[in-house]
Amino acid sequence: MFKGDLFLEAIGPVASAALVTVQLTLAAGAISLLAGALAASAQVGGGFFGAFVSRAYVSLMRGTPLYVQLLVVYFGLAFAGLSGQAFLAAALAIGINSGAYSAEILRGAIAAIPPGQIEAAQAIGMSRWRIWQRVVLPQAFISSLPPLTAELTIVLKSTPLASVVAVTEMTYTGVLIQARNFSAIEVFAVVAVGYIALAQVLLRGSRSLERRFRLLRG
């Protein structure tokens, strides 16, 4: 039932597709962080309009399936003259989806910054933008590192959906091999191990970060 030769045949292609999965995870993760920082900033210090736009963004992202978002972004980019940009579409869709969750994480971290620090910065004459850039955001990022890394794991686990917009990452590579051999179990085993291994790297990284920061804070 389990054919060893098919298992071995799957390892090479799935491993090289893992590279695509990692690239997509990192690109989407970067977009998530940027979108999250923008949305969190707009919600805290963006006035009525900024807060409204930011809330609408978070609500839209949380309230629609990523599967649907991917298709909307892919076909939406085509209207914007960027048709066929599969990787860009996938990274953007997964990134802005995750950005809504990053925004919530960062917003919580910003709220936890003691107001005294901001008052102190104002007292030494720093401008609002400078305070944001030098005092608030860096601290928020650092204290959110563990949950942000956990969010990156979710991003990793979302990447298989990118196949619907023509990104041949790890899962879809597996589907193609299965379609060729008419046998699912061997490829499934390789792909599952691939994800669990990648996720372990992130989970362990996140836990060691968490420990380190707990020590720092005493």
Partner: peptide, 11 residues
């Protein structure tokens, strides 16, 4: 925690 839901579904 490490397995995408899509892969679980295929499985």
């Amino acid at each position: 925690l490490g397995l995408p839901i899509l892969v679980l579904l295929y499985g």
